[in-house]
């Protein structure tokens, strides 16, 4: 018992829950926007990877992590537009196109890593995004150790969740996005440009995924490794479903998955079956997806291409 108390009472566990959640929260939020407009964006995994690579690339090139972040978002945005064009205009199967993007991203980033940086990997002097350390924040009990000394992207993520909720549920554009994902024909007859709204949804998911990728490569580390996203794009989709396609829900679910990851670290040292403990985040994902905690209903037109009459 005292061992468990030591684990759960340690603020480090909760702080790392938050930092491990960020690369899930951002794409889960992104997926919420994409799927709310009716596009299943499984390509977020690949877009994240591209974001991660170009963040390091531009950061090391200019020795400025902010340029790295911008480069990541632009590269991720380009990838998202290509995906969106195939999924929306060409009406290709969204899951297949998404998988293609993921395989492409994995190959492209591995190739670029080797051709640009060689076998030594990315430069060790690649600058990282800053961690924020406010002494006044650190002195607040509980909240201080939890929130202080995190990457700046952690704070940005928290802001984006709130902004995302406001945008989706309290703006005209948000209403239109939700309408398009439920019944694109109805939106079309109400004079809404369905394609434009769907591009917007996918683009937002691309930006947020790229941001998550940059967080992995220049937020918590300062290097890029092959396939470093390690399925987080998919887990984020699970978080989004578990969170019922809402920003706060996705955030909560991503936190749960982040907690499972954070928990597996101290448990590994205290429990014998190390490999079993490492499975924890994935077990939680599966449990969430098979409907523990109620059935969730997807947007009615999620994943269905739309073709306007001529």
């Amino acid at each position: 018992m005292s061992g468990l108390l030591a684990i759960f009472g340690n603020m480090q566990l909760w702080a790392s829950t938050l930092s491990l959640s960020v690369p899930l929260v951002l794409p889960a939020l992104g997926g919420t926007f994409s799927e709310r407009t009716g596009v299943v964006n499984i390509a977020m995994e690949g877009i994240m990877l591209i974001g991660a690579f170009f963040a390091v690339f531009f950061s090391s090139l200019t020795m400025n992590p902010w340029v790295g972040l911008l480069g990541a978002v632009v590269a991720g945005g380009i990838m998202a537009v290509i995906f969106a064009w195939a999924a929306i205009r060409l009406r290709s199967d969204q899951v297949i196109i998404g998988m293609a993007v993921n395989i492409f991203a994995s190959g492209l980033t591995a190739y670029l890593l080797n051709t640009i940086f060689g076998f030594g990997g990315t430069p060790v002097n690649t600058p990282m995004l800053p961690h924020l350390n406010w002494p006044w924040l650190g002195r607040i009990p509980v909240l201080g150790p939890l929130l202080n000394d995190q990457s700046i992207l952690v704070y940005i993520t928290l802001l984006l969740v709130v902004a995302g909720h406001f945008f989706l549920f309290h703006t005209r554009l948000g209403l239109r996005m939700r309408a398009v994902g439920e019944n694109p024909e109805a939106a079309d007859t109400a004079g809404i440009n369905v394609y434009r709204i769907r591009y917007l949804g996918v683009l937002i998911s691309g930006f947020l995924s790229a941001l998550a990728g940059a967080y992995l490569s220049i937020g918590v580390l300062n290097s890029f490794e092959v396939d470093m996203t390690n399925g987080r794009g998919y887990i984020a989709l699970a978080a989004m479903i578990f969170g019922r396609w809402t920003p706060f829900g996705s955030f909560g679910a991503a936190l749960l998955f982040g907690f499972a990851s954070a928990l597996s670290m101290p448990l590994q040292s205290s429990v014998a079956a190390k490999n079993l403990v490492q499975m924890l985040p994935y077990v939680v994902t599966i449990l969430a997806l098979i409907g523990v905690g109620g059935k969730s209903v997807a947007p009615a037109a999620d994943g269905v291409p739309y073709e306007a009459e001529k």
């Binding site: 309290h170 703006t171 005209r172 554009l173 948000g174 209403l175 239109r176 939700r178 309408a179 439920e182 019944n183 024909e185 109805a186 939106a187 007859t189 109400a190 004079g191 809404i192 009615a300």
Partner: peptide, 23 residues
Amino acid sequence: MLIPVLTVAENIVLGSEPPGFRF
């Protein structure tokens, strides 16, 4: 051409909402 999960008001004004960024 209705969206069952939205309210009557949301369905009616959809696409021609009162002006402003906020809904």
